[in-house]
C-alpha cells in the first residue's frame, strides 16, 4: 500500500495518484483532483539517505583513485628515469636510450590522458602543473636524501656519467611536450565519453518511459 499523502488544502489523500515530473523543474508533482492544489511527492527518505551516502563514498573513492593512479604513474616514470634510462645514458647505447624514451613517452601520454579525463575542469597548463609538481616534490626529496647519504646509493658523482636526478628532471621536463601533444587525443576522449555517457542516460530514460507507460 502506498504511503498516505494528504493534500494540505482540502485533506484529500493523494496516495493513489501517480506523481509525474513537471516540465519546468522536473519535480515529481501531484495535482489534487478536488481543489487543484499542486503538491510535491516526497522522495523516500531511505533512498535519499542511501543516495547521499553513496554520492559521498563515490566522491571519496574517486579522489583516492585519482591520487593512487597519478602517484603510481609518477613513481613508475621516476623509477624508469633513475635506473634504466640513466644506465642507458652511461652505456652510451642509443638504441636502448630510444626504446626507454619511447616507453616513458607512452607512460607520460597515459598519465596525461588520465588527468585529462579525470580532471576535465582543469586547463591544460594546470594539469601539466600537477604532473610537474609531483615530480618536483619527488626530486626535492630524492636530492635531500642523496645529499644526506653522500650520494652513496644514487651514485650522483659525475665520474660515472649523468646524474640520475638530472636525468629524471630532464625526463619530467620532456614529458611536458608529450602532455601538449596528447591534448587533441584527450579532447577526443572527452567527447567520446560525453557521447557515450549521454547515450547510456538516453537508454535509461527510454526504459523508464516504457515502464511508466506499462507497455
Amino acid at each position: 500500500m502506498p504511503a498516505s499523502h494528504v493534500c494540505p488544502d482540502c485533506g484529500t489523500d493523494l496516495a493513489r495518484l501517480h506523481a509525474l515530473p513537471d516540465p519546468h523543474y522536473g519535480l515529481r508533482l501531484v495535482r489534487c483532483p478536488r481543489c487543484e492544489r499542486v503538491c510535491v511527492r516526497a522522495r523516500d527518505p531511505l533512498k535519499v539517505l542511501w543516495r547521499s551516502l553513496r554520492v559521498r563514498a563515490a566522491a571519496a573513492l574517486l579522489m583516492l583513485g585519482h591520487g593512487v593512479v597519478l602517484l603510481g604513474m609518477a613513481i613508475g616514470f621516476a623509477a624508469v628515469a633513475i635506473d634504466p634510462l640513466t644506465r642507458a645514458f652511461r652505456r652510451n647505447n642509443t638504441r636502448e636510450q630510444m626504446e626507454i624514451v619511447i616507453a616513458m613517452a607512452i607512460l607520460a601520454g597515459i598519465a596525461s590522458f588520465w588527468l585529462g579525463l579525470a580532471a576535465p575542469h582543469r586547463r591544460l597548463f594546470e594539469r601539466a602543473g600537477v604532473w610537474i609538481s609531483v615530480h618536483a616534490i619527488g626530486l626535492a626529496c630524492a636530492f635531500v636524501f642523496a645529499q644526506l647519504l653522500h650520494a652513496a646509493d644514487l651514485d650522483t658523482s659525475p665520474r660515472v656519467g649523468p646524474n640520475p636526478l638530472v636525468v629524471w628532471a630532464g625526463a619530467a621536463a620532456g614529458s611536458l611536450a608529450v602532455i601538449m601533444l596528447t591534448e587533441p587525443l584527450v579532447m577526443l576522449g572527452r567527447a567520446a565519453w560525453r557521447v557515450g555517457a549521454s547515450g547510456i542516460f538516453r537508454l535509461r530514460r527510454r526504459r523508464a518511459k516504457i515502464l511508466r507507460s506499462g507497455v
Binding site: 504511503a3 499523502h5 503538491c39 531511505l46
Partner: peptide, 18 residues
C-alpha cells in the same frame, strides 16, 4: 537542480532509525 520544500509525507521512522 530544483527541490520542492512542501513534502508530504515521510515514510515513518525508518529513515531516522537507519
Amino acid at each position: 537542480s530544483v527541490t520542492g520544500l512542501q513534502e508530504y509525507p515521510t515514510l515513518g521512522r525508518w529513515a531516522r532509525r537507519w
